[in-house]
């Protein structure tokens, strides 16, 4: 008989939003930001190891991080955390039967908060 078409390599299609609705955007964003933040977490822990190597190493590291490229990267992390965290609230509460029928409105509302917060952080970071 015919084979099941599912295979692990189909994971590429997780991230294909064509012909999909809003919920898929939420799923895709949550997955990408979740994985991105996980990579960042471990990089961050490694970088903080500079603290153990004393004042010169750490302050040198901070000077490096202050250039615009690193600031932009840092903003990306803040944006990812906001999107992922706020979307996480949507997943959490709908999973317990709260606002299940209103997940789209919830998503749009939470993402509006995320965008406002991202813009706020961007202005703050680049004008200080």
């Amino acid at each position: 008989m015919a084979e099941h078409p599912q295979k692990p390599a189909n994971l590429i299609k997780w991230f294909d939003p064509r012909n999909k609705s809003l919920g898929s955007w939420a799923f895709i964003l949550n997955r990408i930001t979740g994985l991105g933040l996980t990579v960042y977490l471990f990089l961050h822990l490694i970088m903080l190891g500079q603290l153990a190597r004393g004042p010169e190493a750490y302050d040198g590291f901070i000077a490096l991080v202050k250039n615009p490229i690193f600031l932009a990267g840092e903003l990306l992390v803040i944006a990812a955390a906001l999107i992922h965290g706020l979307n996480g609230i949507r997943i959490g509460i709908t999973s317990f039967g709260i606002a299940g029928g209103k997940q789209k409105q919830l998503f749009i509302g939470l993402m509006t908060v995320a965008v406002i917060a991202i813009v706020y952080f961007a202005i703050r970071m680049f004008t200080h």
């Binding site: 919920g23 709908t94 299940g100």
Partner: peptide
């Protein structure tokens, strides 16, 4: 993982999600 695509395509108001 809460993508809600099932509810989107269901032709019969089951609202599976």
């Amino acid at each position: 993982h809460s993508a809600y695509e099932c509810t989107e395509v269901c032709p019969s108001h089951v609202d599976p999600a």
